[in-house]
Design a binder for these strands. Structure first.
Length: 820
RNA sequence: GGGCGAGUGGUGGAAUGGCAUACACGAUGGACUUAAAAUCCAUUGGCUGCAAGGUCGUGAGGGUUCGACUCCCUCCUCGCCCACCA
């Protein structure tokens, strides 16, 4: 024995240099090989990465290396999502310019990627905070503006008092800012929006194209888009010209309407109550509950309250007049802000009606237990049979939804309509560290877009960072002052910057021509390489980033800039790594740094453990003990290389033990290949390799002096199958086995079906479903032969106690069950 | 409140209708060593038994089946996403 542990430090340095020299991770421009675009979500540059971050890149790198070995022309780029609040907040705190800290962090991260052995085509790096990149983010804004998909409006928006900025709905979690957890309040401000709602239906429909996305993610997007189909119905306000339109998905309950309730933000309120005797009180209610809307939006449970307007509305199906209320439980943004209330069949309406003594009218009866409006304790929301519904009485309620909708459309008193929960994407931020929105305000010409040839609108560097509710850019006169692109007169620039989700919704196009300065991306190249074959990232991006990217790609497709409708063909979302049961974070002081572990055990050990810890889509708890296990395993494999175990080259007949080892070798190839092609279950792939190593040792132990060529095959297979997971040590061992080329130029092994077959099979024997015995039978044996063998078995005879089995079930190649 | 997912040894997990607990961690005992580390060997779900074995066992209860961790129904617990969406 030469050394106690394998010399990982030398090995890892050596092979990293070699891969660099051979350009292992460089995409080949004109290669006949099939393309494979493997993309990891580009990270926000943060100072210290931990093993939880590492998981993403280790998974991705293993896939990349596997695909290289399978003979693909692989594109594996990396970049940085470099704009954003944390760098700016840090600048406010310690005075270091965001650009400096960000670029520093990028350097550190590149070193850490390298230390994990994660390989990228670094010539293609994109950094979203650099003008050569954000120039084209601004260009994308202008394209959306041109198409009428970027617009400005005054809106009641989520405001984070701590970050001093507006947040998108998606960035408000339980009423708190997703970044700093401050309570979010509401403010009315002029904001830029992207009209993503124009794409609601297509974003929903095209989910069907994404066969290789996790169902869970597709479902989350579907729910977020929130399509609901229903009917819009106009209710006339009695003794007035006002018409209130409401939306319902339960038009079958229309005859059960006993009142109508509108949002406290409904625009018709002033007109409706102008002559009301208790106008003051109504106004007071409206004002009070409007304030609560902010609290409501943050998820607090607010008691349902309402006030009678003094007006009545006419139900168009039966001309009944029902009272009109203003309520705090109607959301102005959804539907029409007015709801027809059916207390008998909607729980919210039921509670409200009980509280204010409003009528309850049953129109869908429970066939098993007829309802009595007086005695109901809660709304009846199941299906049933129509009652009190004019000509629809007696029909099952499910059928009447369509029938009543038809009837209302014929009578022109209602119209089928579709509503979505998806809101337009608010993209302006009152912050410095982002791409400036390329718009100009001229007193004469109004809002003007910056001319495309004047891009980029450079973010000035000399700036004061104190936040005060407006973009810090306001205090940079040399930035703000500009000439109007239309009339040439004095004008001022937009001082808001863009949401960083805009930066990240197109970066995957930029990797194909990162240095191109005439256009954002090369149409021919992106059409060749996109959609991305495999996208890998955290499930926390299941809604925002993935939805926005899909939207931008569809817009670019519609404008003819690209030829594909969806950016990511296949998506893999990996789970979190936890420590003490919770997500690793600096503030919780449970971070496991990868640097120390790599110093102690080397990158391959950290990689192996990370992949072995659990199925990669699941969350997993980090264990330092487990790392040691991975370390021991690699050393155990390393020792297989020792001279004393080198097999003799003399070829001879395969004996039984030798063919067992050969079978295991080929079964392992099969298993690992299937895991890599299917589920990415690296944990079971690695277990299978461990089993092969164990069997190889058993084989050597049995006949150390007479090992056949199947030993060499086994060892060579172990090394090549391990290569995607533990690339450095695999390379070194590959070389030690006498191979001249890199293991990544070697062909991935194919399993031999013949090697998997065996002469005899062991059949477990169950009696009444319980395992009682086992027999050996020739694998070619027919049912009769197996039956005979089973009935001769001593243990079977003992259990049968002289009885004859009623049935004998033989599952081919698997087991035998006797029913007594 | 709605939707989705999960629940298996002391621990991470394996098995998706056919031998439950592969593989690994941990633990216990042993070999080697002056000693330790490393390595190697053995044992390791519960109960019962000297043993062979028996018996129970995949959150709980029921069902389908020759056979259920796996499929169906009811319930419990945890996690994630959405949430006054009409």
């Amino acid at each position: 024995m030469t050394q106690e542990f394998y010399p990982f430090k030398d090995i890892e340095a050596k092979w990293r240099k070699r891969w660099e020299e051979m350009g292992l991770f460089k995409m080949q421009q004109d290669s006949p090989k099939k393309k494979y675009y493997c993309l990891m979500m580009f990270p926000y540059p943060s100072a210290a990465l931990h093993v939880g971050h590492g998981r993403n890149y280790i998974i991705g790198d293993s896939v990349v290396r596997y695909k290289i070995m399978r003979g693909y022309n692989v594109l594996s780029p990396m970049g940085f999502d470099a704009f954003g609040l944390p760098a700016e907040n840090a600048a406010i705190k310690n005075g270091i310019h965001p650009e400096i800290s960000t670029l520093n962090n990028i350097k550190t991260m590149r070193r850490q990627f390298d230390s994990w052995g994660a390989g990228y085509d670094w010539d293609r790096e994109v950094v979203s905070c650099l003008p050569e990149y954000y120039k084209w983010t601004q260009w994308i804004f202008l394209q959306l503006y041109k198409k009428g998909l970027a617009y400005k409006k005054k809106a009641s928006v989520n405001w984070c008092p701590s970050c001093q900025t507006v947040l998108a709905n998606e960035q408000v979690i339980d009423g708190e800012c997703e970044r700093c957890s401050s309570q979010v309040t509401l403010r009315d401000l002029e904001q830029w929006f992207f009209k993503i709602t124009e794409y609601s239906q297509r974003l929903l429909d095209d989910l069907q194209l994404l066969e290789n996305w996790p169902e869970r993610v597709k479902l989350m997007q579907k729910n977020w888009i929130g399509r609901s189909q229903g009917v819009e119905i106009d209710f006339k306000v009695k003794d007035s010209d006002i018409i209130l339109r409401c939306f319902t998905t339960r038009v079958d309950t229309i005859y059960g309407v006993t009142y109508m309730v509108i949002s406290n933000e409904h625009p018709a309120i002033p007109e409706l109550i102008k002559d009301a005797p208790d106008k003051k009180e109504i106004e007071k209610f409206v004002e009070e509950t409007r304030k609560e809307n902010a609290a409501d939006r943050i998820g607090a449970d607010i008691e349902k309250r309402g006030v009678f307007t003094g007006k009545f509305v006419i139900n168009p199906v039966n001309n009944k007049a029902v009272p009109l209320w203003i309520g705090n439980y109607v959301v102005i943004e959804y539907g029409t802000g007015a709801v027809m209330a059916v207390p008998a069949h909607d729980q919210r309406d039921f509670e409200f009606a009980k509280k204010y003594g409003l009528g309850i009218e049953v129109v869908i009866d429970n066939p098993k237990d007829p309802l009595d409006a007086e005695k109901m304790k809660e709304a009846y929301i199941e299906e049933g049979v129509m009652v009190n519904s004019g000509k629809f009485n007696g029909i099952p309620s499910l059928e009447t939804i369509e029938k009543i909708a038809d009837f209302m459309e014929e009578e022109k008193i209602g119209k089928r309509e579709v509503h979505y929960k998806l809101r337009d994407w608010l993209i302006s931020r009152q912050r410095y560290w982002g791409a400036p929105i390329p718009m100009i305000y001229c007193d004469k010409c109004g809002i003007q877009p910056v001319d495309e040839k004047d891009l980029p609108v450079i973010l000035p560097k000399n700036i004061k960072f104190k936040p005060h509710g407006e973009s810090p850019l306001k205090n940079a006169p040399e930035f703000v002052k500009v000439k109007c692109p239309k009339c040439g007169g004095g004008a001022r620039r937009e001082i808001d910057t863009m949401d960083t989700f805009v930066d990240s919704s197109w970066y995957f196009l930029r990797y194909l021509s990162p240095k191109e300065d005439k256009k954002p991306f090369n149409k021919e190249l992106v059409n060749k390489w996109l959609p991305v074959d495999q996208y890998i990232g955290g499930v926390e991006h299941a809604i925002l980033h993935l939805l926005y990217s899909r939207f931008i790609v569809k817009v670019l497709y519609d404008m003819g800039y690209i030829g594909f409708k969806e950016p990511f063909a296949k998506l893999f979302t990996q789970g979190m790594i936890t420590k003490n049961g919770i997500k690793m974070s600096k503030s919780r002081e449970n971070v496991v740094s990868s640097d120390g572990l790599i110093e102690k055990y080397g990158a391959d050990t950290v990689r192996l453990y990370t992949l072995f810890i659990s199925p990669p889509e699941k969350d997993a708890e980090w264990s330092d003990r487990g790392v040691e296990g991975a370390w021991r395993f690699l050393n155990r494999v390393w020792r297989l290389m020792e001279d004393s175990h080198q097999p003799s080259a003399i070829s001879r007949q395969l004996d039984e033990k030798g063919s067992d080892l050969k079978r295991k070798t080929h079964a392992t190839i099969k298993k690992v290949t299937e895991d890599m092609e299917g589920t990415f279950h690296f944990n079971t792939a690695i277990s299978a390799i461990m089993e092969l190593v164990n069997e190889t040792y058993d084989y050597i132990g049995l006949k150390p002096e007479a090992c056949g060529p199947e030993l060499r095959e086994a060892i060579q297979t172990v090394v090549i199958l391990l290569a995607p997971f533990v690339p450095h040590v695999a390379e070194e061992m590959w070389q030690k086995l006498g191979n001249k080329e890199s293991v990544f130029n070697a062909e991935w092994p194919m399993y031999d079906k013949n090697a998997l077959s065996q002469n005899t099979i062991e059949f477990p024997i169950q009696i009444n479903g319980k395992l009682r015995s086992k027999i050996e039978a020739p694998s070619a044996a027919g049912e009769d032969e197996i039956k005979k063998l089973v009935l001769k078995d001593q243990i079977v005879i003992k259990w049968l106690e002289g009885r004859t089995p009623k049935r004998i079930i033989i599952v081919k190649g698997k087991l035998v069950n006797l029913v007594v």
